[in-house]
Design a protein around this nucleic acid. Structure first.
Lengths: 152, 152
DNA sequence: CAATATGTGGGGGAAAGTGGGGAAATGTGG
DNA sequence: CCACATTTCCCCACTTTCCCCCACATATTG
């Protein structure tokens, strides 16, 4: 039972975002509508069902925090993590601080990523996607070992 | 039990595409009509029976996602993966985002590729095919080791 | 040539997405 | 502690999209 697929979403003037209907039922049973939204280090937002988030949180807490990168991860991911619920119409209200972080305007893209969902500003998503595709073709087959084994 | 062969397909104004009748029965028994369509990094679409897709999805989810290339693969392949069913007439409705990605117009080509099917815009298919043939002749027999062993 | 199967197009009803007004709750400053 | 401003949430109404069904055109088979 994983999240997948792309949805074009509009964010209204109040910062509300409608969760696609096909995800709502799954979110209800996975976590009773309790979600956690946080930031990702490449300028998008991550949405977890609360139980899934708590697993991640434990990992973050137990990182060796004399390491500088560990502290960065902790401050970003835990620092921005916000608990929120869907309203009666299946929408979530994204706090202004998170919207600012991800540069979210009126149009956004919601993509399923297994145990979590990602929210991108539409323009940012398109730009990144072009870059990714260009990189993949430029690299010409030089992939890390873990990736080389995958065949689609 | 593999898919093979090439079919010319038309996509109507609503984005619907008729699956050739000879594939339908096989798709029904393979997955009860549950299909997953996603993108490929060279601008075509991939159609999997749901069980086949889930095998790939598991591999994708378990990739080390602090690695940049892993995230790109996850975002593209899982991000666009859309679950859909055939309607009463054996057609599937391709979401606008997927049609845009692959540049699909009214005429498309459906190609059997073993466990999956590929969908190309007809014009794009023809152009690529010419290019591939030209490249193969230009390279003059310099193949990677894994390919050198194959005899057709 | 008839008869069946396949491909193609379109209309209508239901569901989902979108936006705004107002009440309740929360926070702030006097 | 009270008055005011702001935010949050709930409800209603409108618009758009999606999906199911029917009807026709084309191709295939006996």
């Amino acid at each position: 039972m994983h999240f997948r697929g792309l949805n074009n979403i509009s964010i209204d003037a109040k910062g509300r975002m409608a969760i696609p209907a096909r995800y709502r039922e799954r979110l209800q049973e996975a976590c009773g509508g309790n979600l956690v939204v946080t930031v990702d280090h490449d300028k998008c937002l991550l949405v977890y069902p609360l139980p899934e988030w708590e697993i991640i949180e434990d990992k973050l807490i137990n990182l060796p925090n004399l390491n500088k990168q560990s502290r960065v991860l902790q401050r970003l991911y835990m620092g921005y993590a916000t608990e929120l619920e869907m309203d009666g119409q299946g929408r979530i209200l994204l706090p202004a601080s998170l919207r600012d972080y991800a540069g979210l305007g009126k149009k956004a893209v919601l993509i399923g990523q297994g145990k979590k969902l990602e929210i991108w500003d539409e323009a940012a998503w398109n730009e990144n996607q072009e870059q990714w595709l260009a990189d993949m073709h430029a690299e010409g087959g030089e992939l890390p070992d873990t990736l080389a084994e995958i065949s689609l």
